[in-house]
């Protein structure tokens, strides 16, 4: 791989995010926060990016994606308990199980769009939720799947323990780096351009000769597989898999996060949204138990006045800053002699 293709692989915002997240465990305590929060942020960023592949890039509103986060968590635990207590095998089990179930769901719903698609994702998520709650022998029902281990990271030559939040964070960060680079590649590839074209005008895409159903199926399955990976990491973080993350509430929250962040206009929207959500939870939550009420109000204000979300505010600020920098060149210096 030559230096140009390496340069094409990374972008400046990507490198900034790697720098910020890559150093986070070293400064998060100093700003009054804690290591586990960083871990949560990292996992939810992966999950939100997966959701945004559907919502922001393909225009497919999945209101039941929390189910796939949960399936990933359960599958990680079940693989670990029943197949092999190996990190790689368990991670593969989580991703494969979520991809298979996601692919199955996608086969039924990929011919739909808009509100019908959204309703079918809710229906499917409810099916998975009730299976998880009633199949107690396997899932532990309401109690969840307890004692999921943070299995050691086997690198062949060395084995690294990820029992500490610090070490587990860096496993999540490695997953984040791979997913961000891969996803950036994907959204700028022909495949990525076609899914975004499907969001804009799916009938025109079909008349160009593309199989819209198949593209929707693939992107839904891929999004589920990445959600499953996030679920597996979440199971390790929580040392258990619990049914609450499969509820519609959590599926709604991740949509809220993506929209507040500005997933519709920016690749980085979900990242901003997750940071905003967890900071709001911890900072507003320190003052009031009703912090979600205030968060909801912020969401309403955002929808009313800046539907492009935090990414939109950032873009506006960049434009404004850019104009200020250009202004002296564009306009002659004011004549201060006359006074302002």
């Amino acid at each position: 791989m030559n230096s140009k293709s390496i340069r094409n692989l990374f972008t400046a915002p990507m490198l900034v995010s790697f720098l910020v997240f890559g150093t986070m465990p070293f400064w998060i305590d100093a700003i009054g926060l804690y290591q586990y929060l960083g871990l949560e942020v990292m996992i939810w960023v992966i999950f939100a990016l997966a959701v945004n592949l559907l919502l922001g890039y393909t225009g497919l509103p999945s209101f039941g994606h929390g189910a796939f986060l949960g399936i990933g968590a359960y599958a990680f635990g079940l693989t670990q308990f029943n197949i092999a207590a190996n990190l790689w095998v368990s991670l593969f089990g989580a991703v494969a199980a979520t991809a298979v179930l996601g692919g199955l769901v996608a086969a039924f719903i990929s011919h739909r769009r808009g509100i019908y698609f959204a309703l079918m994702t809710i229906a499917c998520a409810q099916i998975f939720f009730f299976i998880a709650s009633k199949w107690t022998d396997v899932t532990g029902g309401e109690d969840g799947l307890l004692n999921i281990q943070r299995l050691p990271l086997d690198l062949g030559l060395a084995e690294i323990s990820i029992k500490s939040n610090f070490n587990l964070y860096y496993l999540c960060f490695a997953a984040y780096v791979i997913i961000v680079v891969g996803m950036w590649r994907l959204v700028n590839s022909p495949f990525g351009k076609i899914i975004t074209a499907i969001k804009q005008n799916d009938s025109r895409v079909a008349f160009l000769g593309y199989n819209v159903w198949l593209y929707k199926w693939i992107i839904f399955t891929l999004s589920c597989a990445i959600s499953g990976l996030a679920g597996a990491l979440f199971a390790m973080a929580q040392e258990g898999a619990y049914i609450n993350i499969m509820s519609l509430q959590w599926s709604g929250i991740v949509i809220l996060i993506v929209l507040i962040g500005g997933g519709f206009i920016s690749f980085w929207g979900p990242v901003l949204g997750v940071i905003f959500y967890f900071l709001a939870r911890d900072i507003l939550g320190a003052y009031t138990e009703a912090w979600l009420l205030w968060f909801g109000l912020i969401f309403m204000l955002m929808v009313m006045f800046k539907p492009e979300g935090l990414a939109g505010i950032w873009q506006d600020a960049q434009l404004m800053f850019g104009r200020r920098k250009e202004a002296p060149q564009a306009c002659p210096e004011p004549n201060h002699a006359g006074g302002d």
């Binding site: 094409n8 590649r185 700028n188 590839s189 022909p190 990525g192 076609i194």
Partner: peptide
Amino acid sequence: LENIVLALPEVSARGFSMTHNLAH
């Protein structure tokens, strides 16, 4: 340009490519 590029036969022939950067 993006509208046109999506319709080009060579692009539609590799529509499932997830790594090729279309902008380049």
